[in-house]
Structures are given as structure tokens and as C-alpha cells.
Design a protein around this nucleic acid. Structure first.
Length: 564
RNA sequence: CGGGGUGUAGCGCAGCCCGGCUAGCGCACCUGGUUUGGGACCAGGGGGUCGGGGGUUCGAAUCCCUCCACCCCGACCA
């Protein structure tokens, strides 16, 4: 492709709008332009990268037996009502204003299940893997970070259908391996974490993550262990018992509202404090007891409660249920009998301090076994950097990460809701057992750039590069010899089927070099009078920024050995 | 949805607080000339509803009201 006839609007100056490297570089290198908040146009060069990503996705999905569909973004709302997800999605789902009964699909479990119900009627019809690479619409409350969180984006979404749970395990493992292949082929460094299934429903799920300060997720990782902070646990020791088990005693704490206050004013060790919070879970109050200043992990609470309809109680609710306001709540002498759950670290603990359910007072010497009734114990806390890993005690690192892909064992949530059943070999009707697997296409592109750039621009891998070779004529419009050599090399490279971008513009050398480094094609072939008079050309490898000056005659062999 | 910020030529910005001649600068663009291996130089030129609406004023990019868009932090997030 001749650059003189191409549309590649590179920018010398940086827009203040773009805050993260991938967003800045996608704008500067002429790959994308923003049309509205969370909505991007892909320009020809950027779309070539998208197509490279898509082709890798397609090859790897086909390799595990996936069948490619193209499902509509416009969906009848009735199907979504049958699975209860109109409510679950809430504002995230786009609804049309001038046509009742249609929504824009944020994902496609419902539609896949709908078609499966029509045609997958026997255990002999499975296993099946159906996938598509298609545009999703999500009305994000706050789009951000360029294409990383958009209101419209391309997703590779796949769905497995099996007649047995063992079959689901097989399909899940196939996707796990396919995803590893995909990200390795793209040249992205990633890790996999155990994750929460969120509102998707289902059992096991894992996320494919890229460590990045631009990420919105937080993960705890150590050798042999990695988990989303939403589900991560650690081997930190329980509070336990001390020998001196004194009788429970009330004491005045007029100026202590927080655990920190108790620690400061009364010298109580932080881990001997039990913090109480009240949540309204499905309209039912739960008192939740946590150690010291441990943070309640709401995602874990949602998983335990089996609902995401929960919220912290309001002040007047606190008084109604416990008898006290914030800062004086505890598990002993609750005004009303409400459900009490506690973090595992508090199991069997004694000599604890907690609120007395009377404003301005706390109890000390609480023995959780003796003085109050805890209904259930769960892992409810959010892990903290440095805590020992449950695998081998190594300290956990807590890092920010971008979610690139997510695989779920859905189970029968959607097949149950939509009545997608099959007959097994005994002639018995069963719901189809499903899995769901997604990769954000733009995120793959952005994550690659996050990991592969320098101050001058992008450093594309061969797999994702929009073109492989950047042929640069240095002042070729002033030299017939240079121009002739460029034209000859361009013709030859085209004949050899290389993907070559030929910068034949009448621009100065500096502009061409800087544009080339910004765009970041893997190899630059630089033809100028300086070297050409000795029969040489220069090649520059963008990833390493190494240069070689070689005889023109050797160019093709050198390129073949590099790009092979 | 709460908090903060921004909106002036295609892009990046100044001017606004403290109202006042024809609204500026850099880049880009057009014409002519000189240059030519890391974002050249000279000369000339085109391009503006100062985000929209309303108000105050002799006079508004500038002050007030209101709406909108975009960015950032938080909440939320399959």
C-alpha cells in the first residue's frame, strides 16, 4: 500500500483527553478516533489490527470445533424477560425509544439458548460450541480509558452445550487452552485468575488478565496462586482464643466511632476488635462481623447470599435492628433477632471488643462462643498485600489488571429459564448444560499496546501488525535513483506477498522516520541516497530498535529470515 | 448518580479572574521560492455560530442563569 494514497492521520501533539498509553498511541498513530463517550471509529490502519486479532480468534475457535454464527444486536426483550436479565442488567442494557419490545444485546446467552431450544433436542446433538465475533452494546455508566471500556465494542463470545457436566468440563478446558493459545499468539503477557461469576450466574469461572496500572480489576497473585480480589483468600491465621477468659463487661466509649479510635483510645489490639456492619440482603437484615479493620468483600457476600440485591443499612435501620447507630453496633444484645454471620477468622475467638448496641458503649471480653450466637461463618474479607498465599505461604502481591477474557461454567441457568432441554439416552428430559466464554477484541489490541510501546510509539508483533514492512524512501522525490530503487523494492515485496506499507510521500526524512516509529511496524526498510550509492539499504527492527545496513541484493533473504 | 475539571480554526493551546479597537499563538492546510537521513526555512494566503440558549450591559470569549458535550475521581460494572 502506498502511503501517499492512504488515510493515516498521525498526530504530533498529544490530546489531554487520553490518559493511558494505549489510548494516546491509538489516537496518535491514526488507528482510531473517538466519536462519542465510549464510542470509537476504527480508521483503516486500526481496523487492520482488529482484523488480525479476529483472524487469530477465529482460527483458535475453529480449532476446538467452534461453529461461527452471526447473531443480531437487536433482540426481542421478551427473551431477556424470561431469564430475568432485563432487571439484572438494569441501565446497562440499551432500550430503544421508538420501538417497544426491542433492546440492544449486551451479550448473547439468551439468543444462543433460544436457538438451542429450537434445534438441539437429543444428547446426540451435542457437544456443540457456537461462537460469534460481533458488536455488543452496553450502556456503561462511565466509559473510560479509550477502547478499554466502551459503550459499543466487538466481542468474541462462545457458548458450549453439553449433555453432561463432564462434557462441560471438557468444553471449558478446551476454551481455557484456546484462550492461552490466542493470547500467546498475540504476544500478550497474561495470567489467569479465579473469578466471581457475578450476575452471569453459574459455577466456576476464570478471567484472563493483563497486569496494568490502567486496569480496573484488582488481583492477588503469588507463585502458584492467582485470584481476582473479589474471590481471593489468604492463609492468614484466625484470631483464636487467649487463656484468660474474663466475663463480658460493658465500658463507655463516648468518642470512639471506629476501630482506629478504639485502638488509639483504649490500647486494644486491632485484631481483638470485631467490626459489625449491617446489610440489607433481599430485604432481610444481616449483621456481619469482621475482624478489626478487615474490609468486607461485597462480592463474596453476594455469592453467599445468592443475590446482588444487597446494600448497607441506613442509620435509622441500624437503630431499629440493633438499638445503636454506626460505631456502637455489635453481636451481643441485639435489639431484634437478626441473622448474624461472621468472618472465618473470628471462629471461636474470645476476649473480643465490639459495640454494645447502645450508643457510646462497647463490650470487652466477648467470647463469641459464650456470649452471642453467630449463625454462620464464611470467608468474607478482602485480602491485603503481603498476606501468605494459601498455596505455599508466599506473600501475595495485589496488582491492578485489565480483564481480557472470561470463561464461565454457566450450568443450566439459561436452559432452565428458557426451557432448552434435550432427551438423554434413557429418554429422559434434561436441561442443556452450558458454558459461556468471552474475549474483548479491542481490549486485546489495547493491552498489546500497553505492553509493547516506548516513548516514540508502538512496537507491533508480527501477529498483530497492520502491515509487516514499512518501506521508507528518503527524499525519493529528489532522486531518480532512490525513487527507482524504492519502486523496484516495493514491486518485489508485493510480488513476494509481504504486507508492505510504502511511505512514498514527498515528506522530509524526519517526518517519515518519526511516523514510522509511531506506527511501529515490525521492520523498516530505509532506502536513501547515502547508502544506496554503495548498493546498500538500511533495515531497522522496531521492537529492538536495532539497525543493519546490508546490500540491497541481500534484503529479501534478510526479511524472509526475520518475518518467516 | 455524587464530586472535580474542560469546551476558543482540522489538531494542540493562550486570552476569561479584572468586560472595551479587527479574537491571538504553534502545528496542519493552500501559493511561490530555498532546503533535504530524525518532526526545515522565507514570503504570501485561506479557515472562527469563542459548545447551545437566555440574561446583565452602551459594549460579553470574558459577568449571571440554564442546558449540552467531553475528561478525571468515586459509585456501578455480564
Amino acid at each position: 500500500m502506498r502511503q501517499s494514497a492512504y488515510f493515516l492521520p498521525t498526530l504530533k501533539e498529544q490530546s489531554a483527553e487520553a490518559q493511558i498509553p494505549s489510548h494516546q498511541l491509538m489516537l496518535r498513530a491514526g488507528l482510531v478516533r473517538q466519536l462519542a463517550s465510549g464510542v470509537f471509529s476504527f480508521l483503516p490502519m486500526g481496523y487492520r489490527v482488529i482484523k488480525k486479532v479476529i483472524e487469530i480468534l477465529r482460527e483458535e475457535m475453529d480449532a476446538i470445533g467452534g461453529l461461527e454464527f452471526l447473531l443480531p444486536a437487536l433482540n426481542p426483550i421478551e427473551i431477556w424477560e424470561q431469564t430475568g436479565r432485563v432487571e439484572a442488567m438494569g441501565d446497562v442494557m440499551f432500550h430503544l425509544k421508538n420501538r417497544d419490545g426491542l433492546v440492544l444485546a449486551p451479550t448473547h446467552e439468551e439468543i444462543i439458548t433460544y436457538h438451542a431450544r429450537q434445534h438441539v433436542k437429543s444428547y446426540r446433538d451435542m457437544p456443540m460450541i457456537w461462537y460469534q465475533i460481533q458488536t455488543k452494546f452496553r450502556n456503561e455508566a462511565r466509559p473510560k480509558s479509550g477502547v478499554l471500556r466502551g459503550r459499543q465494542f466487538i466481542m468474541k463470545d462462545a457458548y458450549s452445550m453439553d449433555s453432561s457436566w463432564e462434557g462441560l468440563d471438557v468444553a471449558y478446558d478446551k476454551h481455557y487452552q484456546a484462550y492461552c493459545n490466542i493470547f500467546e499468539r498475540c504476544g500478550i503477557k497474561f495470567f489467569v485468575v479465579g473469578a466471581s461469576s457475578g450476575a452471569m450466574g453459574g459455577r466456576q469461572s476464570q478471567e484472563f488478565m493483563v497486569e496494568s496500572n490502567s486496569g480496573e480489576d484488582t488481583c492477588a497473585i503469588a507463585e502458584g496462586y492467582s485470584a481476582n480480589i473479589e474471590v481471593a483468600s489468604s492463609a492468614i491465621l484466625p484470631v483464636g482464643r487467649i487463656d484468660e477468659n474474663l466475663p463480658i463487661e460493658e465500658f463507655a466509649t463516648p468518642n470512639a466511632k471506629t476501630i482506629d479510635d478504639l485502638v488509639e483510645q483504649f490500647g486494644i489490639p486491632e485484631h481483638r476488635c470485631a467490626k459489625s456492619v449491617v446489610y440489607i440482603v433481599n430485604d432481610e437484615p444481616w449483621l456481619i462481623l469482621m475482624r478489626g479493620n478487615d474490609e468486607l468483600n461485597e462480592t463474596k457476600l453476594q455469592a453467599i447470599a445468592g443475590t446482588n440485591l444487597l446494600r448497607p443499612a441506613l442509620s435509622d435501620e441500624l437503630v431499629e435492628f440493633t438499638g445503636a447507630d454506626h460505631g456502637s453496633i455489635g453481636p451481643v444484645n441485639l435489639k431484634k433477632k437478626i441473622k448474624v454471620v461472621a468472618d472465618n477468622l473470628l471462629k471461636g475467638a474470645n476476649s473480643m471488643v465490639s459495640g454494645a448496641n447502645k450508643d457510646g458503649f462497647h463490650f470487652k471480653n466477648i467470647d463469641l462462643d459464650r456470649d452471642c450466637k453467630i449463625d454462620e461463618f464464611y470467608d468474607l474479607r478482602t485480602v491485603i498485600e503481603g498476606e501468605p498465599s494459601v498455596v505455599n505461604g508466599e506473600p501475595l502481591r495485589v496488582v491492578k489488571a485489565i480483564e481480557l477474557g472470561h470463561i464461565f461454567k454457566l450450568g443450566t441457568k439459561y436452559s432452565d429459564a428458557l426451557g432448552a432441554t434435550f432427551l438423554d439416552s434413557d429418554g429422559k428430559e434434561n436441561p442443556i448444560i452450558m458454558g459461556s466464554y468471552g474475549i474483548g477484541v479491542e481490549r486485546v489490541m489495547a493491552c498489546f499496546i500497553e505492553q509493547n510501546h516506548d516513548e516514540k510509539g508502538i512496537k507491533w508483533s508480527k501477529a498483530l501488525a497492520p502491515y509487516h514492512i514499512h518501506l521508507i524512501g528518503v527524499n525519493q522525490h529528489k532522486s531518480d535513483e532512490v525513487n527507482a530503487a524504492c519502486e523496484e523494492v516495493y514491486a518485489k515485496l508485493s510480488e513476494l506477498k509481504y504486507e508492505v506499507l510504502y511511505d512514498d510521500r514527498a515528506e522530509t526524512a524526519g517526518i517519515k522516520f518519526n511516523d514510522a516509529d509511531l506506527l511501529g511496524l515490525p521492520v523498516q526498510v530505509i532506502i536513501g541516497g547515502k547508502n544506496l550509492k554503495d548498493g546498500n539499504v538500511e533495515i531497522k527492527f522496531r521492537a529492538s530498535d536495532e539497525r543493519e545496513i546490508i546490500p540491497l541484493a541481500n534484503l529479501y533473504a534478510r526479511l524472509e529470515s526475520f518475518l518467516k
